[in-house]
């Protein structure tokens, strides 16, 4: 260990750089007056917290909607991404490399373009303004991330273990539940977490497709930012961070419970 002091300085600078914004958010939620050049607020108040958490009914509605939409989006994404990633990761076919790149297309085209285009289609299908419609649009944006992560996992794990299981007499179902799923679980978890976060933080897509009827946390947050009610926005931001973290912890907990000693790609 050379330069222990330098290492400590670098470490604490990074720690400060990452935690300071969150800390200032926390302080902001209880500050009624906080002006330059004061280091800390001059007047404290609970009223922002109380109004958002206890008085505003829309908070609960938005939280429930956000979580429900993110959970459904994650489920739909994995359902589509796992078979797609397996095919792209393991099977040899003409145009495989091109398809692997095209999977990322929804992220390369400006999001608003995709959303406007889909809005028309969803109106025709009668899905605009519904949770289902929002989930479909969110999935368009989560699918590239999830597929990409899972392609890498399938390429890493390979087909050998499935072949070995088949030779040992396992049925396709047993191969899926006892070999493939446990082996891709770390990647599956990453893909799920990423999908959840991407869905949870969508604003424009929810705004357009939900048509104002589907209220989510970002939809509550943004107007307050624009109107300068920065303390209310801070409360929503903290709520946003905490519910995302709680969901990730829940997902990890479930995986750990069902896949004890899960293989965390220790190659």
């Amino acid at each position: 260990m050379r330069f222990p002091r330098l290492r400590a300085i670098i470490f604490y600078s990074f720690l400060f750089a990452t935690s300071a914004p969150v800390l200032s958010l926390v302080v902001l939620t209880v500050s009624a007056a906080w002006r330059y050049p004061s280091l800390l607020p001059t007047v404290f108040s609970w009223r922002y917290l109380v109004s958002v958490l206890a008085q505003d009914r829309r908070t609960a509605e938005a939280l429930i909607n956000s979580t429900l939409i993110a959970a459904l989006t994650t489920a739909l994404t994995l359902l589509l991404a796992v078979p797609a990633a397996k095919a792209l990761g393991l099977y040899q076919f003409r145009g495989r490399q091109a398809v692997k790149l095209l999977v990322l297309l929804p992220l390369m085209v400006p999001g608003i373009t995709v959303t406007m285009g889909m809005h028309l289609t969803l109106i025709h299908l009668g899905l605009a303004g519904s949770i289902a419609g929002v989930v479909v649009v969110h999935t368009v944006f989560t699918l590239p991330y999830a597929t990409r992560v899972l392609i890498n996992v399938f390429e890493l794990v390979g087909e050998k273990y499935e072949k070995q299981a088949a030779m040992l007499g396992a049925s396709p179902r047993m191969i899926l539940t006892d070999v493939t799923l446990p082996m891709i679980m770390p990647g599956l978890l990453s893909a799920a977490i990423m999908s959840f976060i991407v869905s949870f933080s969508q604003y424009i897509t929810t705004f357009f497709i939900g048509g104002g009827r589907i209220l989510t946390v970002p939809l509550l947050l943004v107007p307050h930012l624009q109107s300068g009610e920065i303390q209310v926005a801070a409360v929503y931001s903290l709520l946003f961070i905490m519910s995302t973290l709680a969901s990730i912890a829940l997902m990890e907990g479930i995986v750990r419970k069902f896949y004890k000693g899960a293989y965390f790609l220790q190659t």
């Binding site: 273990y161 072949k163 088949a166 030779m167 007499g169 446990p182 082996m183 896949y259 293989y263």
Partner: peptide, 18 residues
């Protein structure tokens, strides 16, 4: 393969790591 009972022991053994 599932019904053959002809089993390959691979060069790297392919033991289920989990």
């Amino acid at each position: 393969a599932q019904r053959r009972k002809a089993i390959i022991v691979f060069q790297d053994y392919a033991l289920f790591p989990h």
